[in-house]
Amino acid sequence: MMHYKLIFLFYSVLSGIHCSDSSYDSISDIYLEHELIPNAGFTKRSSILVNLESRNDVVSTTTINDSDIQLLKQLASKNELYRLKITVRTLSGKEIHFLTFTRACLIVGSKLNDILTIHLDHLDSPFAVNLATTSNNCNSFNELNTSFFTTTVFFRRPESSPLPDTATYIQKMERERDAREKGKSSNNKSLLGKYWMYILPLVIFMMIAGASNPEARQ
């Protein structure tokens, strides 16, 4: 459920922004390396081909061998951090390196389902990559029965800034002024007539009071 909500959110972000022209240096593929033994260095995990033009998120699955799974389980049982090094390659061959992490038990707990979010700036070039898992489960890491890493890659572009909403405000003011003028004209016509039902009883009451008073004096 949470997963779908997430996708929906990212779609809404993406759909709001048109795809800019192809003069910029587009992303061609993403190369992932992870660290399975603390401070022992990074080993290759997978490489994901990406086409930014299609505007779709990318789902990629890669197999992971049994020894790596064992290492991952060890990492999770020691409550260590799972570090992921991301190299984003562009069509012109430029490489940008990023680093991200999560808790190793979450990777195992979510049955090797993870989400990579690539943040693009206003020129569509990446500046940050974030890693998250599909579940927040950190206990059931012994039941791991899959040997596939399922990675979903999202692209997120910045929103555009708010602008002072002068047009709507002016419209609103005009509407209010019109309403006021209308109200004023109708008010002027029937200022007395409008509230006759309140004024008449008052007058009658005062008349009765005035009539009854002299009698009382007598």
Partner: peptide, 29 residues
């Protein structure tokens, strides 16, 4: 950042300094 069409672009990023997650980005042209 200097920009060819918008002179300069100011971007506000909200970052979680612990996890490094970009929470939100917004561009002011």
């Amino acid at each position: 950042a200097p920009d060819t069409t918008h002179k300069s672009v100011l971007t506000l990023h909200l970052l979680d300094a612990v996890s490094g997650i970009i929470i939100y980005s917004v561009v002011h042209k």
